[in-house]
Design a binder for these strands. Structure first.
Lengths: 122, 122
DNA sequence: CCGTATCCGATGAGATACTG
DNA sequence: CAGTATCTCATCGGATACGG
């Protein structure tokens, strides 16, 4: 039987899941950086700056798992690994970019609201 | 003087921050629910379903702090507290809805990619 | 160069119990 | 009814060290 808080809630949860997925600390940064073109591990690390090796590896694995990026190993010495967005990854970039634009346009308003709130509430 | 479309990682970090902000477990669910109209605490809790009292309070405080929602107390007995989206909150809903649509349209592709990855990598 | 393993502190989130 | 206070457990993310 259908619970009374029905239909929409299901969809919202799926959306929440995606937002949590792309809302972790590094995913957006990595995806937008890869959006400029294929890049190898060390280039990515340098381009992003401040990300640990562990988190870059973890983030890239997740992207690969979800079909947002591909991983190509060149068995040379020293080894070289290239990462590239898939079509799905590039499509993801579209709504994410929309949100980005919103963020850029509105961070100031949010910061002001926070300052106001923090000032009045102790 | 904002001639170019600048993809500095500073901007990306601000975007990451917003995504983490709205990417927590309950924010999107609460905001989209409030998008249907003002609602009191207990209505929200029931409408969402599965959220603990603590997390609903916490989430609503954050929304209030960031200027996405307002909180109105009616000093009756028993007390009644209404929550409502601000203009900023309703504006946020626009890009979030875009991402929602993308999520709905593509969860299947993501799930398939995951299944493939998990099958080959184990 | 790229990736893994381990340890550790910080944060997230649920359960429960209590107050005005 | 709405909110606070603890307690507890899981997960996140950084630092460091090691391996192919």
């Amino acid at each position: 039987m259908k619970p009374r808080h029905d239909h929409r809630s299901e969809d919202c949860r799926a959306i929440s899941a995606l937002l949590q997925r792309v809302g972790d600390k590094w995913t957006v940064l990595v995806v937008t950086t890869l959006g400029k073109g294929p890049m190898r591990f060390s280039e990515l690390r340098y381009a992003i700056g401040g990300i640990s090796q562990k988190m870059l590896t973890t983030t890239l694995r997740s992207l690969e798992r979800d079909g947002f990026a591909t991983r190509t190993v060149f068995p040379t010495i020293p080894p070289r690994v290239d990462y590239e967005l898939t079509n799905l990854g590039r499509e993801l970039l579209v709504p994410v970019t929309a949100l980005s634009e919103w963020a850029r346009a509105n961070t100031e308003r949010i910061n002001k609201a926070r300052a106001r709130f923090d000032a009045t509430v102790k």
